[in-house]
């Protein structure tokens, strides 16, 4: 409709041109009268601006440099920087873990401890692999009776704090990487299912009618029309879900999973600022980085036709 209207507007521009010309002429006369005065004023302002902004920028830079220097000096003097540097091997291990642990865990040996990134990958990928098909399945017409009720439950579920989910997971599965992965999986699953369902259900009915009318089977309609058109919403769900996941992973240490949480919680317990920061800074950077990566993924992986960002 909008497009039709804009096409219409294009037609009308021609008629409008006459009026606009006179508008411009009138405005032009006024402009000319004002021009010289404004020019002088603007010149003065630009000059002042340039001086001001320049000073401000240099001034800002100096402040930043001073602050950074002070922070660094303080950190060095208090030994924080040194202790962070001494923990570098731990940081790397707790971030990446070992490939062997992952393969052992996936082959059913749940005594293997998963570290930070493996925890994110295993629980996140599992949640995507389960959540997307489940959400799509819920959007099938024959599921309509149960789907809405289930969505209510999931909506309530997403308000449950992740620490509580981990605690409950531990009370059922005990201590170790298994309850950690399970808890993370559940916390990640809900937004994914919700968005996959919402995305597929909100594909306009006229698209389904077109697809049916041209002779697509229900399966073809799902794969060629519904899922592709829900892709942006599905991806948004994955992004939200993984943000929650990455934010929760540091807590996995509490129930016996691995990861950088160890440094933070131990640091708090020992009142060791260096250890705290050695955990907290990589955790924060990793979270920001993952979100950035997913935002890029959403931008580039979702096809242009259904991507409102492109």
């Amino acid at each position: 409709m909008n497009r039709a209207a804009s096409e219409d507007a294009n037609v009308r521009t021609y008629e409008d041109d006459g009026f606009r010309d006179t508008d411009y002429q009138a405005a032009g006369r006024t402009r000319n009268r004002l021009k010289s005065g404004i020019d002088r004023l603007a010149g003065a302002m630009r000059l002042a601006d340039a001086i001001g902004a320049g000073t401000l920028k240099r001034f800002n830079g100096v402040i930043y440099a001073l602050a950074l220097f002070a922070l660094g000096a303080w950190a060095w003097a208090s030994g924080i920087l040194q202790s962070i540097w001494e923990l570098r091997d731990d940081v790397i291990y707790l971030t990446f873990g070992e490939w062997r642990d992952v393969t052992e865990f996936l082959s059913g040996d749940f005594s293997a401890t998963l570290q930070h990134i493996p925890l994110v990958l295993v629980s996140g990928l599992l949640a995507i692999l389960v959540g997307v098909p489940f959400g799509v399945w819920l959007s099938r017409p024959y599921m309509a009776r149960y789907a809405e009720a289930l969505m209510q439950v999931l909506n309530v579920g997403t308000t449950i704090p992740t620490l509580a989910i981990l605690a409950l997971s531990m009370s059922v599965l005990g201590i170790g990487s298994l309850p950690a992965v399970f808890g993370l999986f559940v916390a990640t699953l809900l937004p994914i299912v919700r968005n996959a369902y919402a995305g597929c259900s909100s594909v306009p009915s006229h698209l389904i009618e077109s697809a049916t009318g041209m002779g697509m089977t229900p399966r073809q309609i799902m794969m060629r029309v519904e899922v592709p058109n829900a892709l942006f919403v599905i991806f948004a769900g994955i992004r939200t879900a993984l943000a929650i996941n990455v934010g929760t992973v540091p807590l996995a240490f509490l129930i016996g999973g691995g990861g950088l949480g160890e440094l933070i919680f131990q640091g708090i317990a020992l009142n060791d600022f260096g250890m705290m920061l050695a955990g907290a800074i990589p955790v924060a950077l990793l979270a920001v980085f993952v979100d950035f990566l997913l935002a890029q993924g959403q931008y580039w992986l979702v096809p242009r036709g259904v991507n409102p960002l492109r």
Binding site: P250, I264, I281, D291
Partner: peptide
């Protein structure tokens, strides 16, 4: 908001 809370505390 993307920074995990425990990391924010840690900093």
């Amino acid at each position: 908001i993307t920074v995990p809370s425990i990391a924010l505390f840690g900093v």
